[in-house]
Amino acid sequence: MARTILITGASRGFGKLWAEALLQRGDQVAATARDVSSLQDLTEKYGKKILAVELDVTDSTQVTKVVSQVKEHFGSIDVLINNAGYGLFGTVEETTEQQARAQMETNFFGLLWVTQAVLPIMREQKSGHIIQLSSFLGLTTLPMLGLYNASKFAVEGLSETIASEVAHLGIKVTLIEPNGYTTEWAGASAAQTTSDIADYNPVREGFASSGENADNWGNPEATIDAILKVIDSPNPPQRLLFGKVAYHAMPEIYRQRINAIEDWKEVSIAAHGH
């Protein structure tokens, strides 16, 4: 059955790939981007099946208008894919206030505004699926990505809460948690801090060398079948890792956390006081 799907950040990367895959199979897609000319190829190819809309997700007023436009145009919004976001590279100390706020405005607040705007439509429908593009780095961290890590940890907490609030309304929530992929996330889409504090050079060099292993980077096209399975599932997971790096790393990370909890068990219980 064809669905109506709203995808933010559809100008490139996962968003563009997934939008086209959904259009190819017959779904209706509302695709947003800061520059809608990046979607011209899809509008020319798919015609009325796609609604390309300019959107800056950090503008909550514009978000509300665009979501209303999509609802009026297609009549419903069955699936929301909150994909808009970017990486900010640099140590935490080197990050300016402006850079930190901009990272959170897009990756966290932008996702929040779009989710809030779509929820009334899904509540009225008593159905819907919200898919949040989080990250493997919403579960663990890497150096040089402190504000990005923080934004995705925030997305995780927000989305898990929403899931608990809307389940009885027939609305599902899924967090997609990719490891690194060969999209433009770490290239043209990324931002960099400008201050280079020499004391952090060993961290910087270690981070750079870890990214040189091509096998650590997933193939974006391989995610198409995975996202379609999530959308089509009657019982989608609340969380789903994308990529073998994330899949193999997380069990060990959780084992270490559980061990630390148990090692400090007596202190934790004593801190309760009674």
Rank of each mutant, 00 (worst) to 15 (best):
Q238W: 13
Q132F: 07
A270R: 01
W18V: 05
S68F: 00
D59V: 01
V66S: 11
F14I: 12
L137T: 09
R34L: 06
T106Y: 05
M250L: 13
R257M: 11
V166R: 00
N213S: 12
R239Q: 10
L145G: 15
H168E: 14
N82W: 07
V70R: 15
E212Q: 07
L39F: 11
Q24V: 08
S195Y: 14
I121H: 14
S151M: 01
A19Q: 02
S268C: 07
A21Q: 05
T174K: 00
I130E: 11
G13H: 14
T106C: 01
Q62L: 06
K229Y: 08
D196C: 04
F242T: 04
T174C: 02
D35E: 06
Q62D: 13
D199M: 03
Q28P: 03
V118A: 01
E94P: 01
G90W: 02
Q98E: 08
F153N: 06
G75E: 08
A208V: 02
A260L: 10
G47M: 04
S127H: 11
A246S: 08
S189F: 04
A271P: 03
Y254R: 15
Q24Y: 11
A186T: 13
I176T: 14
N259V: 11
Y46E: 13
T64R: 02
S38M: 06
A150H: 15
R3G: 01
A102K: 09
D35C: 10
T182N: 10
A117S: 14
V92Q: 12
